[in-house]
Amino acid sequence: MTRSKLISLSISASIAVLAAGVAISSQDKYALQVPNGLSFSEFRGCEDWPVIAISDNEGKLAVTVGNPAMIDAYKEGVPGNGKPFPDGAKMAKVHWIPKKQETYPGQPTVPGIQHDVDFMVKDSKRFADSGGWGWGRVRL
């Protein structure tokens, strides 16, 4: 992927993250429950979290965002520095079906219909059986 396409995708994905709340606002997303005892309400405000990564996952565009605890851990060098992620660190990964934006110059690939949201939280006590991580997926 060329640098200009990556920049275009990054900008489009960042804008799309902000729209994620609008995309699923037709249902009460904070009332959604997933296996492992997580609820989407634990991720309230994730639309405003900083972007960690942008990726192409099995034909879907994705952006991963992190809460302040996660971002601070990355800034400190976790996991490369050998330290664990702290309890309270959270990530959300929003997936979209890609589409061509035919009205933009170069017809870049941009997020289309939102597909699902994955989310993870580090809580060593609550999720001791899974290495301290709880996760879930909400299909939209």
Rank of each mutant, 00 (worst) to 15 (best):
F43N: 02
V65K: 06
M120N: 12
E58C: 03
F127V: 06
T2H: 05
T2W: 04
A92Y: 01
T109G: 06
S130W: 03
S39P: 04
D72F: 00
L38Y: 00
G66N: 08
D129C: 11
K75R: 15
G112F: 02
G21F: 00
I71M: 13
K60Q: 09
G77M: 03
R44Q: 07
A89S: 11
G66C: 06
E42D: 11
I54Q: 13
Q101C: 08
A23H: 09
G37V: 02
G131H: 02
S12E: 12
D56N: 14
I15R: 13
Y74C: 11
M91V: 13
L6A: 09
N81Y: 05
L9R: 12
R126C: 04
D28S: 15
A20Y: 01
P111F: 07
M1K: 14
L38P: 04
K93T: 13
R137N: 08
L61P: 07
Y30V: 02
G66Q: 08
E58A: 13
I11H: 10
P79S: 15
W135P: 00
P111T: 14
K83D: 15
E42M: 10
S10I: 09
G134T: 11
D87Y: 08
P35V: 07
M120D: 13
S12Q: 08
P98W: 06
V51H: 02
N81E: 06
S26D: 08
A20H: 03
S4I: 09
S14I: 08
T109V: 08
M70L: 05
M70T: 01
A16L: 01
A19W: 00
N36L: 04
A53K: 05
Q27I: 11
D48I: 00
G132E: 03
T109I: 13
S12G: 10
S41D: 09
G21P: 00
D72I: 02
P108T: 03
T2S: 09
D118L: 11
R44P: 00
A62K: 06
S12K: 10
D116N: 11
G80D: 03
S55G: 07
S12R: 14
Y30T: 05
V22F: 04
A53W: 01
P111M: 11
G66H: 06
K100T: 12
R137P: 12
A73K: 06
Y74H: 15
V17E: 14
A69K: 15
M70W: 02
K99V: 11
G132H: 00
M70D: 02
S8D: 12
V121L: 11
G21I: 00
P35R: 12
D48F: 09
D48N: 09
E102Q: 12
G80N: 09
L61A: 11
S124H: 11
I15N: 15
D72S: 08
D28E: 10
K5F: 01
H115G: 04
C46D: 04
P105V: 11
T64K: 14
S14V: 13
F43K: 05
L61Y: 15
M70F: 08
G136Q: 10
G132Y: 00
N36S: 06
V117P: 09
G21W: 00
K90M: 14
E76P: 04
T64A: 06
A16E: 01
P111L: 07
R137L: 07
T2C: 07
G37F: 03
G80H: 10
F119K: 03
